[in-house]
Design a protein around this nucleic acid. Structure first.
Lengths: 131, 131, 131, 131
DNA sequence: GTGGTCTAGACCACT
DNA sequence: GTGGTCTAGACCACA
């Protein structure tokens, strides 16, 4: 159920079991692509219609996601042309990416602790993760 | 913003950055406590009102979480007395806990990948996590 | 006071004299509709708001009923679209329906006994029930 | 789980699956006993303590039930002596009993209809009820 | 328009 | 004081 789209740099996938709403998953993944350097200023995002088809969701959901990304200044829409990664990075400093990483790490740590997985076991688990 | 409550075994915390609704976060943490063995049959949960105060949220949200846990048979309510871990564990077999661990691991892996963190870096990150 | 809604297959009514809470009465009637075969997989339930208006109760009460039916796997919600009878019947075997019938019968018998209605009179009463 | 108490005329039983709160079930059964003529003016009810023990519930619940019955004028408490059926019947006319019977009958009819039991089958079901 | 989450606050049932 | 039900109303996510 993890439909994937775009060229290798812009693959977006939805996880229905994730709990997070689809539009937010899309936003997050594009933000992350920018923060990680995989998406660079001027790169063109998939069209709303194609992304909707590929992810099998309503185009309005993509509109929402792109719209919110534009409000945040992360993307730019040029009517009739498409949606592009903006010149303004979400947070020019790498601090933002660092912050996100720590956030994800913290959530991971907390959930594993709640599940009774000792810190010493975590390293083993992570290093044995399949691709 | 991660207010914490209860004795050391039943600490429940909300993460506002976590997209999941609050009532679901509460459910998850209690399920995890049971799966990990930290919460045992007969243990008393915090009262609805006290948890609401500690988490600074509306009591109805706790009511909802506890109610859903009861439907799932994880918890038992004795009106006028309190809410208790039920005799029926969610899945006595350890399979359920394993499944949840894999789920968390998968989500972690995916989010880190999206943030551009290489698998090789993950082990380092995890092993250097602060307590 | 028995407001009725929907098309002939999905009429739901509340009985204020019935001690059971409203949300439970709603759940029961939908369960029964499924068990009796009147409601079939894929059938659409009344919308939350329309049912609330028809029954003259707060929408949240319907939300709760539908939510619990979803947890039990009887119903499936597609946000933005509606609520539908799920593919998973509560108990495909007819055993469940039989069990419910016996339950209702037992309660009836007990209440009539308490009211001093002899068993011999019961048959007469039942056969003379108006439509 | 249907603990029973008292002499043959005042047997009270609780049905936990009934949904109705316990104190209401107690009230109902005493009312019905009066309406059906099984309980007559001056008859002594079980003591609060003995009934609580027999039904395995909290004495306060009995206190509530008896208290409400007193408010309605159905019973009378004589301090230090016990609780007795009052001289004032709830509704001297037999109309009240009739009304209750119709109420029970109506609920039965509705639930059976909801379960898809035809009226023609009902008579058979009722006449074949075990004691 | 359809469902989902949450708050504030009331009142009830029960220990 | 503990849990249960309900209302009124706000705001969000989605089609």
């Amino acid at each position: 159920m993890t439909s994937t789209i775009g060229d290798q740099d812009f693959s977006i996938s939805l996880d229905p079991a994730n709990g997070a709403p689809m539009y937010r998953q899309i936003i997050q993944q594009i933000e992350y692509a920018v923060l990680s350097g995989r998406a660079k200023t001027g790169d063109r995002l998939p069209t709303i219609r194609s992304l909707a088809v590929d992810l099998k969701i309503n185009p309005n959901t993509i509109v929402r996601a792109y719209g919110e990304l534009e409000i945040r200044g992360i993307v730019e829409t040029r009517t009739g042309s498409g949606t592009y990664i903006s010149g303004k990075m979400p947070d020019p400093e790498d601090g933002e990416r660092e912050r996100r990483i720590q956030e994800v790490l913290g959530r991971f740590q907390r959930e594993m602790r709640d599940l009774g997985v000792a810190k010493s076991e975590l390293v083993g688990l992570v290093s044995s993760m399949e691709e």
